[in-house]
Amino acid sequence: MKKLYSIFKQGIIFDNPLLMLMIGLCSAIAVTTNVSNGIGMGLAMTFVLLFSEVIISLFRKLIPTTIRIPIFIIVIAAFTTMVDLVMKAYFPDLSKSMGVFIPLIVVNCIIMGRVEAFASKQKLASVIADGLGMGLGYTWVLIAIAAVRELLGSGTLAGIQVMPASYQPILFFILPPGGFFVFSLFISLNIWLKKKMEASAKNKELVTKKEAA
């Protein structure tokens, strides 16, 4: 149980896919112009990641290594299309505002990376912990970046006006350069957080288990 928790924590902070592994950045910059997009994208991503990892992990002994990549892509693409269809059917507004980025989850390197590096070698329980950790790690970063960008760039949060009407939105934060700017701030925040947590862990003389990531 403790091992599972440490795998889960890896994804949230220590090996956060966006802030530490630095993969899957394009979607993170592109959709984080408002909070509801961030939540939608994060949850869609978590779903695809979790289920792709589960399927790959269950079938890992049946997948020949030579053609593992095409099989991974088939599995990931199938789940992504499912998410896309379900969103179109039941959350049309969200689906409309996310546009092309939901289908693009297929080529998101976080999923490919985790499936290849983790799910194809591990047992189901740790894979579920990893999928949830990585997915939610991705989600919280998206929501946090989107909150900062939307607040400063449009003066709203999830579409609701927060800033006073006299506030002149700073367009810079909505444009990609602003995305990179906010993103880099979160990277430094995460490194600071990581160092602090590692130091406190050492103080308690708890050796953090290093899982092959």
């Binding site: 049946l62 997948i63 020949p64 053609i67 099989i71 599995v75 693409a77 199938a78 499912m82």
Partner: peptide
């Protein structure tokens, strides 16, 4: 290998068709 790939693809197709 071809048959394996085909099996995975057909499974994915079938589940997609359902959704």
């Amino acid at each position: 290998l071809g048959v394996t790939l085909m099996l995975f693809a057909s499974l994915a197709c079938a589940s997609l068709a359902v959704v």
